[in-house]
Computed example of a mutant assay.
Amino acid sequence: MPNPLKYNKKFDELNEEEKKLLEINKKSIADFVEQSSSISDINYATRNAHAKTYAVAKGTFWIDPGIPESLQPFFDKEKFDLVIRFSNAQLKIKNSKRDIPAYGFAVQIRDENNNVLSNYPLVNFPLFPVNSVSNFLKLFTAVNRSYIKKWSNLFTLVTQVVKIIPSVLTGSFIKNTIKLFSKKNDFILSFDYHSVGAYRLGDHIMKIKLVPKSVDKNIGRKKNTKEALKSYFHEHDFTADVLIQLCYDLKDQPINKLNVEWKNSPFIKIGEVKINREALLDPRDFTNENLSFNPFESKTIFQPVGKIQKLRDEAYKVSVQTRRKINKLLHGKSG
């Protein structure tokens, strides 16, 4: 294999139009979060994405003793502590028995002093439907406003949805969409989880994949997802392999083209995620709901890479700050 490509801040740079659209989008995020309790008919402000929490758990990241020597400086301990949040991607919380199968597996890695090393919001779909930053910001703003203004913003939303259709017609995207919906009734822990965008690994650039071991996809068919998770962890441990791909060539492993999978980059196993049974945290503890999994709160050498990823920095900040402000007013807790 050739040497991995080195990180360059140019991968993340936004142009002036994109910066202006980002400011508009940030305002729509704040407006959404401020009204999210009434949108979802609950007594707290929610996130602007992955609003629905199924469970929060403690886990352990065990480092594989056989990882390549070049990666060992990044994983210099035998194990690291984890906090993990299971979620659904919808913006509005619904009390339905069966949600759309758009799941989140957000991982926070902490050191021996309980300081955050890195955050990785993993999802069970490996691709992102939009490559254009401008189109994404316009779409995300339209979605937020559609929830706030109800049907009055429908035409704008439909217009933005039409613009992204060409980017979801790639072979990779169609293949993975068919695969996802063929598994729509499968248990949440039976899915593979992906970083979608790229992340730094020191001077290198990586993507992450989490592959569960020996999880029956038919678990919890007669229960909603939250109940199924609770029941599973009452009886079982959970283990998953952690794999990474490195970027060697932008043609085969594009940073800012998220609607295709990386190719010609072998998966490298770096360790395992382990969640012991009875490891779920108290869902009544509001501190768990106020946790942040912002990948830009990671140490610099583990932060996201790419223009779409860069948008998340500002979006997370606005969402978290607004959510905590509202929840402090509602519950007297800042999280």
Rank of each mutant, 00 (worst) to 15 (best):
K9H: 14
K10R: 11
E17I: 14
K19N: 08
K19Q: 13
E23G: 05
I24H: 10
V33E: 01
E34L: 12
I39Q: 01
S40D: 06
Y44V: 00
Y44N: 00
Y44P: 00
Y44T: 06
T46M: 04
T46R: 03
R47P: 00
A51T: 09
K52T: 10
Y54A: 04
K58G: 11
T60E: 11
P65V: 02
K77A: 15
E78Q: 10
K79A: 14
F80I: 03
F80G: 13
D81C: 07
V83R: 14
N88L: 08
A89E: 15
A89C: 07
A102N: 10
Y103V: 00
G104D: 07
A106G: 03
V107W: 01
I109F: 13
N114W: 05
N119E: 01
F125K: 04
P129H: 02
V130E: 04
K138E: 13
R145D: 08
Y147R: 07
K149H: 10
W151K: 12
V158R: 06
Q160V: 02
L169M: 12
L169T: 07
T170A: 01
L180D: 02
F187A: 03
L189M: 03
F191E: 01
D192G: 03
H194L: 09
Y199N: 03
K207R: 15
K207N: 09
D216T: 07
D216E: 08
N218D: 15
T225S: 07
K226I: 10
E235P: 00
T239P: 06
C247A: 15
D252E: 12
I255R: 01
N256M: 06
L258S: 10
V260H: 09
N264I: 02
S265K: 10
F267I: 05
K269I: 14
E272N: 12
A279K: 08
R284V: 08
F286C: 05
E289N: 05
N290D: 11
N290S: 10
L291N: 09
P295Y: 02
E297W: 04
P304T: 10
K310Y: 15
R312P: 00
V318E: 14
Q321K: 10
H331G: 03
H331Q: 02
S334K: 07
